[in-house]
Nucleic acid binder design. Sequence first.
DNA 1: TAGTGTATGCAATGGAAGTGCATTAATTTG
DNA 2: CAAATTAATGCACTTCCATTGCATACACTA
Lengths: 138, 138
Amino acid sequence: MIELEQILKKNNVKPTAMRLLVLQFLLNKKSAISLTDVEEYFVKSDRTTLYRTLKTFVESELAHKIDDGTGVTKYALCEENCHCEIDTDLHLHFHCKLCNETSCLTDHKIPNISLPKNFIAEDVNLVVKGICNKCNSN
Amino acid sequence: MIELEQILKKNNVKPTAMRLLVLQFLLNKKSAISLTDVEEYFVKSDRTTLYRTLKTFVESELAHKIDDGTGVTKYALCEENCHCEIDTDLHLHFHCKLCNETSCLTDHKIPNISLPKNFIAEDVNLVVKGICNKCNSN
DNA sequence: TAGTGTATGCAATGGAAGTGCATTAATTTG
DNA sequence: CAAATTAATGCACTTCCATTGCATACACTA
């Protein structure tokens, strides 16, 4: 528990009860989760609070925001020492159309992309859709 | 004009007046457009009709749907001979945060992606965000 | 020409993101 | 310690976009 507090403090986020709980929840999830997921888990808490909690996490580089193409924003904790930097920290996301889960393939960094002249890249989003290993083996 | 009809017929889409107009509109656009863009252009037509027209185009592989991370679905005509196939047809999209335009970098195919064992890729979406060449030169 | 199927238009719904404001909790400062 | 300031939370509401149901209009076929 104390560890959780440390994580938040390290990123200059005040460790409120709500934030600790949401952080814990995210830690337990292997796949990326949506605001609705969090909302369904913390029924007693308000949607807005959860929304802002996630927003705070993203702004303080504790979590990253994932657009997996489903139209619903997903969130996942950053890896240790992640600064959400292009070329080094950004990885591939995989969305399974069967189980509907979006997972972070953190080992799969985004390949180097050459852009036409005068284009400046600031962020890259790479999402692969298909069938994940779990669903494939069933 | 007759050309437009041919395009539709080739993809088994009945060439109605509305569809011809929307197709024409898409042809004139270099960047990907949203339903709202189309709606603003064809003020007299109904949103639903335009929505379904675009949907029809996507389903008949005349256009592809782009999720550029803005939260608004964009559409762009497929290239000649496109079958929306992974590895050969899918290309990079670039979203400029200044002019807010999403462009198809059709010359930039998506690099080969190696997935972990038992993952099956069916679709890939690669979006780079930053500043486009036009905005960069101003 | 009648009949069938598709396209269109209108109205309405639903989901998700986001904002404004009042209230409460926490922290700083005199 | 109390007052004052700042931050976090909860509630209500708005907005935006995607999507559907149903009735009408159009087009094609028998």
